[in-house]
């Protein structure tokens, strides 16, 4: 298992960040965690584990409070990150 971290600009919109994460997952493995850096950007952690073909694509969703269950999806992680320069609670589903 290899862990790779990347930083993402806090100015990215949710759909932009989601697509860039999906593209990165193709070569660095699945997203495992989201968080903040001390420089006002987001830190993303990828796990280079081989996944079967039927694994769903990663989806980001802004939430209020604890993320709800999504039928057919698994909650990967959640937490506050910058979306469009504002701090928002974001849940990652797959």
């Amino acid at each position: 298992m290899t862990i790779n971290t990347r930083t993402a600009q806090g100015s990215l919109k949710l759909d932009e960040l989601q697509q860039r994460i999906r593209d990165t997952e193709d070569d660095l493995g699945v997203l495992r965690n989201i968080g903040l850096t001390d420089a006002g950007s987001n830190r993303l952690t990828f796990d280079d584990a081989e996944l079967p073909d039927d694994v769903k694509r990663t989806t980001l969703e802004t939430v209020t409070g604890h993320p709800p269950q999504r039928p057919g999806s698994v909650l990967v992680c959640f937490g506050p990150i910058f979306i469009g320069t504002s701090l928002q609670q974001v849940a990652v589903y797959r």
Partner: peptide, 17 residues
């Protein structure tokens, strides 16, 4: 992997494919 954790990297997320 341990080195990657104890060495905080600032590699930017790649652009779109």
């Amino acid at each position: 992997a341990v080195i990657r954790v104890v060495n905080v990297s600032d590699i930017p997320l790649g652009g779109l494919t």
